[in-house]
Nucleic acid binder design. Structure first.
Length: 597
RNA sequence: GGCCUCUUAGUUCAAUGGAUAGAAUAGGAGUUUCCUAAACUCUAGAUCUAGGUUCGAUUCCUAGAGAGGCCA
């Protein structure tokens, strides 16, 4: 049984003995003791003063006294106002550690038989991936890993926005100005190449609008009449009627983009179990809309358009089918959601990793699905994350302030390389080993930076200053891991292996060891918390605290200077468990940890 | 105009309604015969404003100020 539960039960016993009242032990909350006080667990007595009919301080004293006398876990206690700080015996800490050390699945919940789907990335095929996608992808991927650790079976998907006017724009510009350029002929990544023509379209479009306006056309009119825009619209119509030539070009250009994306995803270290394409799903959802009308959930206006009235739910009316019968995003999303539940009948929930500007959209989507009678819609969740701002403000493609994902990752790896070279600790590495290390460090720093923040909040990314290798960063944590690995290598040479008997003769712990064991014991709870809240930042913060606390121990205790071989073996095992936990925790964030750096 | 979110050290981030609001970074002062100094120790520095709820509010409620977003 976990130490927290044991303590809670002891406290419950104390209440029974001292105040003749039963407390439900699972409802007793223990919080970590603040550093300036002695102890590890704190029981806040204010809320229980009513039950004990004593002041919070007296309550705390009674309970503390009972625990000290009757529980062999507790060595001492102190009371500050209504706070009962509980000091555990070193022996019980060693017991806690032994439990963790012998648990091969520490931090992983057994399979709970539930399946969920996590959607993330979901890019357009006309633009390369940028900084915002990095936050999105790292977040979605990490949440999927955390849910797996929490016992779920997880399906990772994305929907690719591969059709519509935007891709037609790229196609038009490529036809007009491309001279048959391909990724091979231009030496460009496919997504970048197509993105360039999307930009080119916009430039030409603006130029044409300006000409028209200069010749007396109104701005509004000019935007509709610009020849290049009309060409894009024609292309869209041809695409929809599956004109072979247009369809071919569309497939070719999207093929280039996918190849580019897959390179980027590989570098990012994210993957998907299934891809959905909007070109396959954009016609879905119409049936549901019409069915909704038939059942009276939706209504039709005189022009034939279909709407849903959400005023009773505090929202507005929402269009589902236009008068001409074409669908809108909402309609498609309804269709796609239903399709996914058909594809994966056992999933109980879909988690959509999408920016917070779409909060309203998802609120409406889930509501409509509920109205259509899909009960699973109640369980669906919009994992809504904030924008990544630059010091100059919002990223804007038109102003060229977009931070490209490939460039940024490359930049990070380069910085890691320079920094590593300066320190000169791994000069004996082969080129491959070195390249691997730079990637681990550079990408780790980037992922950690983006994941350590509460996903719901907008965050600032300063390319100059944001990425550091000191302090609350991935390299700091990775460094702690690498240091421990050095210890483990040496211990292996000396054949220092711990077994059950090792712990019998260890009776005393150093202060830092205690806090590290306390942190270790919190790990499974942190994973649970992170899973419940879809918050990788919980894990990031935790692993940082663990690494920091271990470093304190490392600084104060010289492991191999210990004469008592059992203590030495124990400390090697202790370090090894810390390394493992760091590795597991960072793994949940998609960050690797090196053995040397 | 309606609705939603955010506001904490110079800066970037923390804090299930709990103690003297934590970290990091930038600033100041130290630590290397010893397992990796990408480390460690010390120091200084903050809850947007005004009310309310209670044993206790960064957290909950109301109003206001500022920033961002969504819907027309």
């Amino acid at each position: 049984m976990k130490i927290d539960q044991q303590l809670a039960e002891a406290i419950s016993d104390a209440f029974k003995a001292k105040f003749e009242t039963e407390l439900v032990s699972t409802e007793i909350q223990l919080q970590p003791t603040r550093k300036e006080f002695e102890g590890s667990h704190t029981f806040v007595c204010f809320p229980y003063a009513r039950i004990s009919k004593k002041s919070p301080e007296e309550t705390a004293k009674s309970v503390g006294e009972y625990l000290k006398e009757n529980s062999d876990l507790v060595s001492d206690y102190n009371v500050v106002k209504g706070f009962l700080n509980i000091v555990l015996t070193d022996k019980s800490w060693i017991g806690v550690f032994k439990g963790i050390w012998s648990d091969d699945n520490f931090g992983f919940q057994p399979k709970n038989g539930k399946e969920v789907m996590v959607e993330y990335s979901s890019p357009n095929t006309n633009k390369p991936l940028h900084l915002g996608h990095l936050r999105n992808n790292f977040l979605g991927w990490s949440v999927a890993e955390i849910l797996k650790a929490d016992g779920y079976e997880v399906h990772k998907v994305q929907i690719i926005n591969d059709r519509g006017i935007h891709i037609c724009k790229s196609m038009v510009a490529w036809k007009l100005f491309g001279n048959g350029a391909t990724p091979e002929s231009s030496g460009k990544k496919g997504d970048k190449l197509v993105g360039d023509y999307y930009v080119k379209f916009d430039q030409e479009y603006k130029k044409e609008i300006k000409e028209l306006v200069d010749n007396g056309t109104s701005q509004e009119e000019a935007e509709k009449e610009a020849p290049i825009f009309k060409k894009a619209q024609e292309l869209l119509l041809k695409w929809e009627s599956k004109n072979p030539e247009v369809y071919d070009l569309w497939e070719t250009m999207n093929g280039w983009v996918y190849e580019g994306f897959s390179t980027t995803y590989a570098q990012m270290g994210v993957d998907f179990d299934k891809l959905y394409y909007e070109s396959n799903t954009y016609l879905l959802g119409k049936d549901q809309a019409l069915e909704g009308v038939a059942k009276g959930f939706f209504f039709q206006k005189e022009d034939g358009s279909v709407w849903v009235d959400l005023k009773e739910d505090g929202l507005d009316e929402k269009l589902l089918l236009r008068a001409d019968g074409t669908s809108v995003y909402m309609t498609q999303d309804i269709g796609t959601a239903i399709l996914r539940f058909k594809d994966y009948p056992k999933i109980t929930r879909q988690i959509y990793t999408v920016g917070n500007e779409q909060e309203y959209h998802f609120k409406v989507l889930f509501l409509i699905l509920q109205k259509l009678g899909y009960n699973w819609a109640k369980e669906c969740y919009h994992l809504s994350y904030g924008m990544v701002d630059l010091p100059s403000g919002k990223m804007k493609s038109r102003e060229g302030t977009v931070v490209d994902a490939d460039d940024l990752m490359q930049e990070m790896i380069k910085t890691a390389e320079e920094h590593t070279a300066e320190l000169g600790k791994v000069d004996d590495f082969t080129t491959e080993q070195a390249a691997e290390l730079y990637k681990t460090l550079g990408l780790g720093a980037l992922k950690y930076f983006l994941l350590k923040v509460d996903p719901r909040k907008r965050m600032l990314f300063d390319p100059q200053e944001s990425i550091q290798f000191h302090g609350n960063t991935a390299p700091f944590i990775q460094y702690t891991h690498a240091r421990i690995c050095a210890i483990l290598r040496k211990a292996k040479q000396l054949d220092l292996v711990a077994d059950d008997a090792t712990f019998e003769s260890v009776n005393e712990l150093h202060g830092a060891e205690q806090s590290v064991i306390y942190l270790l014991s919190q790990y499974p709870g942190k994973v649970k918390e992170a899973a419940d809240n879809y918050s990788p930042d919980t894990i990031a913060q935790y692993v940082y605290d663990l690494a920091k606390e271990y470093n304190r121990f490392y600084q104060e205790i010289s492991i191999f200077n210990e004469d008592d071989e059992n203590i030495l073996r124990y400390r090697v095992a202790f370090s090894s468990v810390v390394a493992d936990t760091i590795k597991k925790g960072m793994g949940l964030l998609g960050i690797n940890v090196p053995d040397r750096m």
